[in-house]
Design a protein around this nucleic acid. Sequence first.
DNA 1: AAATCATTCAACCGAACGGTTGACAAATGC
DNA 2: GCATTTGTCAACCGTTCGGTTGAATGATTT
Lengths: 119, 119
Amino acid sequence: MVEQRLDSVFHALADGTRRGMLAKLAVEEHSVTALAAPFAMSLAAASKHIKVLEEAGLVSRRVEGRTHVVTLEARRLGEADEWLRRYQHFWTQRLDALERELRKPEPATPRKTKSRRKK
Amino acid sequence: MVEQRLDSVFHALADGTRRGMLAKLAVEEHSVTALAAPFAMSLAAASKHIKVLEEAGLVSRRVEGRTHVVTLEARRLGEADEWLRRYQHFWTQRLDALERELRKPEPATPRKTKSRRKK
DNA sequence: AAATCATTCAACCGAACGGTTGACAAATGC
DNA sequence: GCATTTGTCAACCGTTCGGTTGAATGATTT
């Protein structure tokens, strides 16, 4: 159930055009034409991308006269992030370890000027 | 450059089988056969999934005799997370706003017992 | 040396992807 | 009323995806 959603969300994110659209939508909502503008493709193609985002639940659409206004809907991004963070310590632990290592030279017991370590 | 990598990482994540493999690898490294075991598919199919993960930089492989040992390589997950977090406030702010709203019923000016609102 | 185990490779398959074009529908402008 | 704007839909096209099967490769066991 939530697994399926992750499929569609991650798939939606696996395309630069769509990520670009989300970036634009993060600033403010846009019409379909406005969203399509930066990309070298037909309006129909852009429209399809928007549909992918919509079906992934990443954007919503409000019809206003003849224009469709697309809005960022980030809850699902939150779900994706939630999934990713289960692994967070894997990419931070090295840094953590490094940090600890870097702090270490400041000795825990600074009394003895010369500390023999190991051997 | 980094955009291309995001493509492959998000694409790799857009599949339940592959996410399952990563989950298993989060516990410890595994051979190809061990990784494939839980899934109802041929070994060749699983092997392809692993290749996708590998090419996305999410896992690495060490050949040990006749078995290939696959290890989680989470740096790229970190990059994906980094991208997602640009949007973090979008899925937290609503909660923030809601929280403020929920606190509000405690009136700012509780003096007047009967407050007429509107009209 | 032969058999078995761990894994990939190559060819194939149907479905989905990302794009195009042309027709269509609805709201707006003249 | 007619043309224009905004957007979708449908059909098509080549490519990629996720899977299969069968053969091939290499390391290990007997």
